[in-house]
């Protein structure tokens, strides 16, 4: 590992939903510009881990350090943290009553108080970047799933986050629409965005990830570079998982 800045560091993270122990002593480090992919069966805790990182779920125990500062959900302003940690959801969660451009400029204008003209200019640049400049004034209901997800990515980027979280961004898409979303994400990775991605797209993990984390039953079982983890998994459970999906 290099001496790059640690963007996310978690130590002994535990999360329970009632009696259900979803995350068990999870440790993780994500360095600047890294693309980390979390894989594992459903129910293994991947999404919960991701949601803990921007405090949509609040941990029960353990440390979450974002950009070298430990975040205490009770005393720190989580809204400020979330401004730096963008999130893309499985079901897009676009604002249906706002046009594509309005979706993108909502947070910069309302949260950061950005001048509207500037926000519109930046928003249009972002839509251009995700290939949807011509859809600026369309409502989300008129878009395909892949287009919706690219708008959602542009909306998150509009806050100029330092870290982007992707929670199964292609799982709700028709197969032929997956590619356009993945290529937008690849472009982001190439530009050096620090990304944590929960996905079942092993091709994306192999091609783009710097690190792959395999999770099973609330624990991180194995961590490695994709070529190592996919070709020579050390743990039996990783081997079983990979042979079941590949």
């Amino acid at each position: 590992m290099s001496d790059k800045r640690e963007m996310i560091k978690i130590e002994k993270l535990n999360k329970k939903f009632g009696d259900l122990h979803v995350l068990k002593d999870v440790d993780m480090v994500v360095k600047e510009n890294d693309v980390v992919v979390l894989i594992g069966a459903s129910g293994s805790g991947k999404s919960t881990l991701l949601r803990c990182l921007n405090f949509l779920e609040i941990k029960n125990d353990g440390k979450i350090i974002i950009e070298e500062k430990e975040i205490n959900p009770k005393s720190d302003n989580l809204n400020k943290v979330r401004e730096r940690v963008g999130m893309v959801f499985q079901h897009f969660n676009l604002f249906p009553h706002k046009t594509v451009l309005e979706n993108v400029i909502e947070a910069p204008t309302m949260v950061k108080g950005m001048n509207k003209a500037k926000a519109i200019q930046e928003g249009k640049e972002l839509l251009d970047k995700v290939g949807l400049a011509d859809k600026a004034n369309v409502y989300p209901s008129k878009l395909s799933g892949g287009q919706k997800q690219r708008v959602a990515i542009a909306r998150a980027l509009a806050m100029k986050p330092d870290i982007m979280l992707f929670d199964e961004p292609t799982s709700a898409l028709d197969p032929e629409l997956v590619g356009e979303v993945l290529s937008t994400m690849k472009q982001l990775a190439k530009e050096g965005m620090t990304m944590v991605v929960v996905t079942h797209e092993m091709g994306f993990a192999k091609e783009v990830a710097d690190w792959v984390f395999y999770m099973h039953d609330g624990r991180i079982v194995e961590v490695g570079h994709p070529q190592d983890l996919f070709n020579n998994p050390k743990e039996k459970r990783t081997q079983d998982f990979l042979s079941s999906i590949l």
Partner: peptide, 18 residues
């Protein structure tokens, strides 16, 4: 209203009230 709407707003740094 789908609770994903509130989560999307919160994930962008918006307060609950906003």
């Amino acid at each position: 209203i789908d609770k994903g709407q509130m989560e999307a707003g919160r994930s962008l740094g918006m307060t609950t009230a906003l």
